[in-house]
Design a binder for these strands. Structure first.
Lengths: 238, 238
DNA sequence: TTGACAATCGTACACCGTACGAGGCAGAGT
DNA sequence: ACTCTGCCTCGTACGGTGTACGATTGTCAA
C-alpha cells in the first residue's frame, strides 16, 4: 500500500555487524557506504556514480548491487551514517544538551554538505536516524515539554539546523580569506550601491567583521533555545 | 578568477520583457522556464530532463539551448521565478512584514518542493532573488536592526524557512487523511513502543491532533520574531 | 561428488546532458 | 532579384548514467 519503509527489521539490530564483514578480502556494505561518503565529500553527490564508486573500491560496478539494492538505498545508508556522527543529547540540562547536539549537527552537516540535500526527498529514516530522533524527543519530554510542545520544539530546532546547513552549503567560499577575496572581487562590484544599498552594506559589514559560520549559528540557536524555555512544563497541553 | 556570476547585467532589467517573446509562434525563455517549473512540480526535479521538457514544448531537445546555456542555468532561472512568487516584506510594522513574507515563502516552497533542493549548490542568485533579499534587508534595517544584527536576523529567519520547507518536502504525505492512514499503517507498527516510546508517543499525538504544516510553521515563526524584537535599535553595534 | 548458495562482474539497454554542424527562414544591402 | 547575415531549429553522435540479466567462480554442507 505505502512503499515507504521506515527501516529494514534487521537494520534495527545493526549495532552488531550483520554476519561479519569478511575483513580483508571482499567488500562489505559498511565499506561500500563509507567509500561512497568519502567520494561524496570530495566531489559532491552529483559526482558520485556507481561506476566511480566501484572503481574506487577496486571492484566491478555491478558488484555493488550485492550490498545495496540500488543507488537510492545507498544514499539512505550514507545519510544514516552521517546522522550517526551527530552527538546525541545528554544530561539533565535540556538547553545544554540540545545546544551541544545542534552545534554538533551543524558541524557534521558542514563536513558533509551533500547530506542536507540528500535529506530532501529521502523518506525512510535509517536506524541511527531513528535512534537520534528518539533521544531528542526523550530529552525534550524529560525537560517538561508536552508531547505536542516537544514536537513543535523539535521541528523548530531541526528546521534551523537544516536550513542553516543548507545556506552554509551554498556559500561560494569556505575560509575567511576566500570570503574577503570573494566579496571584494565579485559581490561588491555586482551589488551597485544605488540599486542594492542594503545588500551592499551587509556584504561590506560581513567582509569587515569576518564571518564564522559556527558563531553565526550559535547566535540564532541561543535565541531559539531561550524562546523555547518558557514553553516547558505546560504538561497539560498535549 | 571566480566563476560565480551573480546575475547577467541585462537580467537585472528584466522587469520589462527582453525583446518581446514572439507571442504565438516559436518559444521564449520565459515559456521554457515556466514549463520546466510545471514539470518539476509534477514529477520532481530528478524527473526533469531536457528531452522531456522539449517534447512537452513540442520542440526538439537541442532547441532549448538557444534560450538556456545549459541545464544548470535553467535551474537557476527556475529558482529565480519561484523566488519572485514570494511576497516581499511591506509596511512599517517589521514583524507583520516579516511574518507575511515568511509565511508566503513557506507556502511557495511547499508548492514547489524541488526548489529547496535547487537552492543548495546553486551559487548565483537571480535578479528576483536579489531584489527580494534587498527588500528584506531594507525592512530589517529600517526597523532599527544594525547591519550586523539585520544579517543575523536574516540568516535565522531564512534558515527556519528553508529548513522547514526541507522537512516538509520530505514528509511522505500531503493531506491530513494521508497522515492518518500513513501513521496507522506504517509508522506506528514500525516504531515499537518499547524501543521508541517517545517517537511512538509523538506520532500518536500527531495523528490524533492532525497536522497542519502552515500552522506548525507559524508557531516557530512567532517564537523567532518575538525573540528578535529586543535586538532592534541597538544601532551602535554594527 | 554433488548441489546450493554467496559473491563477482561483462554485457547490454534505455536514458541523460550537450557538442557539432547542417539546414531553414527573415530581412537588409546591393 | 540576388546574396548575405543573423537567428532559430534540430538530427546525429559521444560519453556518461543506473541497472536488468545471466554467466562465472569460490565455498561449504550433505
Amino acid at each position: 500500500m505505502y512503499d515507504c519503509q521506515v527501516a529494514q527489521p534487521d537494520d534495527l539490530e545493526s549495532t552488531t555487524q550483520p554476519p561479519a564483514p569478511a575483513a580483508e578480502t571482499g567488500l562489505s556494505r559498511a565499506q561500500v557506504v563509507a567509500e561512497a561518503i568519502r567520494l561524496a565529500d570530495a566531489d559532491g553527490v552529483e559526482g558520485l556514480s556507481m561506476r566511480k564508486l566501484a572503481t574506487s573500491l577496486g571492484a566491478g560496478a555491478m558488484s555493488l548491487y550485492h550490498y545495496v539494492a540500488n543507488k537510492s538505498e545507498l544514499l539512505d545508508a550514507m545519510a544514516d551514517v552521517v546522522f550517526a556522527e551527530i552527538d546525541a543529547p545528554e544530561g539533565d540540562d535540556w538547553r545544554a544538551a540540545m545546544r551541544r547536539r545542534s552545534i554538533s549537527a551543524r558541524a557534521v552537516l558542514a563536513r558533509h554538505p551533500w547530506a542536507v540535500g540528500v535529506l530532501e526527498s529521502r523518506v525512510s529514516p535509517g536506524p541511527e536516524t531513528l535512534r537520534h530522533r528518539e533521544a531528542v524527543m526523550a530529552c525534550l519530554r524529560r525537560a517538561g515539554f508536552s508531547p505536542v510542545m516537544a514536537t513543535h520544539a523539535n521541528w523548530l530546532l531541526d528546521s534551523y539546523v537544516y536550513g542553516f546547513a543548507l545556506q552554509e552549503a551554498s556559500l561560494p567560499f569556505t575560509s575567511a580569506d576566500d570570503l574577503a577575496d570573494m566579496t571584494e572581487a565579485v559581490y561588491l562590484p555586482q551589488l551597485p550601491q544605488d540599486r542594492f544599498p542594503y545588500l551592499h552594506e551587509s556584504a561590506a559589514a560581513l567582509m569587515e567583521a569576518g564571518f564564522d559560520p559556527a558563531q553565526q549559528f550559535v547566535f540564532g540557536l541561543e535565541l531559539i533555545l531561550e524562546a523555547l524555555e518558557p514553553l516547558r512544563s505546560e504538561t497539560a497541553t498535549g
